[in-house]
Amino acid sequence: MSPRLRGILFRIAQAIPVVIGVVIIGFVLTRALPGDPAVYFAGAAADAASIAEIRKTLGLDLPLPQQFLIYVGDLLRGDFGQSISTGQPVTADLANRLPASLELTLVALLLSCAIAIPLGVMAATRPGSLIDHACRVLVTAGVSLPTFFTGVVLIYLFYYLLGIAPSPLGRLDFIYIEPDRITGFYLIDSALAGDGETFLAALRQLVLPAVTLALFTLAPIARMTRAAMLGALSADFVRTARAAGLTGRTVRYTYAFRNALLPVVTTLGMVFSFTLGANVLVEKVFAWPGIGSYAVEALVVSDYAAVQGFVLAMAFLFVALNLLIDVTYTLIDPRIGFEAS
């Protein structure tokens, strides 16, 4: 077994206590929330007897430790429980909604990186120049405009006034049928099916929300790129490289940029995890059936199973993401070891 593989396995093993912790905390926190799902779901004209009946159906009349054991037993069998607010198994909900959120977030981040990283590099190489100021303005605007506001403005401009954008009705206009499910990502699934039309339709729906999110995530990435690049450019090894007569381009990209990437990747990981959970407002404005709005809706009605499922799914995702980032570090900087020690 190669040391890298062993390192990865070790990291996965380390994640086990984290997941156990999340299971316990998720359970306790949902129960600690105010609100009584039995009352909520008993409906408009419920009396005490029917509330009690519903409490029993939902298994909420049992003592907490027993509820926890049942929950863990179900989890071990891969059963996340039944969401009361959507009426579906939580696993089915997550399987539908997680790809929707991931697709949106990934496209937004790609877009944001494509703009922010070059911008940050250019701003750092010419500090105080026009492009540096432009970068600052864009970044400030990006952070200071809340996403729901940008979203509504974009809809107003491009859909309502100009009529260029399609109806903000979620992932696909109703006249299209979603592509056969392979990954759950409409862009990938329709491309795999060779269905160019649905691909374009899905892409058109994606543009406005992705731009909204990208505008918001530009700021930390551009700022971090600029700062890291400035640091790297003033480092000793860059001066040495320049003194050795390497071209400006080689110095900038091969030496300085590669070293500046580490903090950028770290920021990217943080921005990704933050965005995935926090793009609720974008999801609401664009009727995007994502995981953020799912969690919020579930929380509002004390839908225990759904909230726990969301927390767990996010925990798994973060564990995977951190692992990915750590592996990326070793690729960027060979000095970073990945040993088990």
Partner: peptide, 21 residues
């Protein structure tokens, strides 16, 4: 009848005014 769920009031308003809903 295609009934779409659109959580945002602002979006629903844009859709009905434009006649897409």
């Amino acid at each position: 009848l295609v009934l779409r769920e659109v959580p945002s009031q602002a979006t629903r308003r844009a859709l009905i005014t434009r006649g897409d809903a």
